[in-house]
Computed example of a mutant assay.
Amino acid sequence: MDTYLAIASRRDQRRYRPEPLSDDVVGRILDAGRLAGSASNRQPWTFVVPEGRSRVEAVAKTVYVPDNVLGAGLVVAVVVTGKGPVSFDAGRAAQSMLLAAWNEGVASCPNGIAERDALHATLELGEEETPVIVLTFGLPERLRDPASRTAEDWSARANRRPLGDVVRRLP
């Protein structure tokens, strides 16, 4: 898929079909996060994947919309260690995973953390580790064909502020 088309056509989706994701697809999604750039190549992230049902249910209780986690075929908590721009680096890794998933026909959604301390305990994180975001992935309940429109058409239909409102040019 064309990168700009992937960016323009991707939308957060919170409802997934019950079929599991293949190990190959899961591997490519996680590897896309691993390949993301980071400040001074520190790679401050760990991708924690809860797999047992009770662990997934415990993670679901820590986010703002638990159903996103409960219905997902893959749940990934992006965890960082260290100081500096680690949250920015985590965002780069997360966006890489979201785009890689979309390239595979997999829907996804970032989930905000409502109970950070509870998530920290649920994931059995160390003292220096901080959970940043919980990503959910699954086969989309509602199929969307990125090639059904041009990237420009997807962009025009996006519920986003106009480009002129978000870009400020300085002489």
Rank of each mutant, 00 (worst) to 15 (best):
D2N: 10
T3L: 09
Y4G: 04
Y4D: 08
Y4H: 02
A6T: 15
I7W: 00
A8P: 01
S9V: 03
R10F: 06
R17K: 09
P18T: 14
E19F: 05
E19T: 11
P20E: 08
P20L: 11
L21F: 03
V26A: 09
I29G: 11
I29F: 10
D31P: 07
A32Q: 08
G33W: 04
R34T: 06
A39H: 15
N41L: 12
R42H: 08
V48M: 07
V49D: 02
V49L: 09
E51F: 02
S54D: 12
R55V: 15
E57M: 08
T62E: 13
T62K: 11
V63P: 01
V63A: 04
Y64V: 11
Y64I: 10
V65H: 15
P66S: 04
D67A: 15
A72Q: 02
V75Y: 06
A77W: 00
V78E: 07
V80R: 01
G82P: 13
K83P: 06
K83S: 15
P85T: 10
P85M: 06
V86Q: 04
S87D: 13
S87P: 08
R92Y: 08
A93V: 10
Q95C: 07
S96R: 11
L99Q: 05
L99N: 05
A101N: 09
W102Y: 03
G105S: 02
G105W: 03
G105R: 03
V106C: 05
A107K: 01
A107V: 14
S108K: 12
I113Q: 04
E115I: 01
R116N: 01
D117I: 11
D117V: 08
D117M: 07
L119P: 14
H120L: 00
H120P: 00
T122R: 00
T122L: 00
T122S: 13
L123V: 00
G126K: 12
G126Y: 02
P131H: 00
F137R: 11
F137W: 10
F137K: 12
G138P: 00
L139T: 13
P140I: 12
R142L: 12
R144N: 02
D145I: 12
P146H: 05
P146M: 06
S148W: 10
S148Y: 04
E152Q: 15
D153T: 10
S155H: 10
R157H: 13
R157S: 07
A158S: 08
P162Q: 01
D165T: 09
D165V: 00
V166T: 14
R168S: 11
R168M: 06
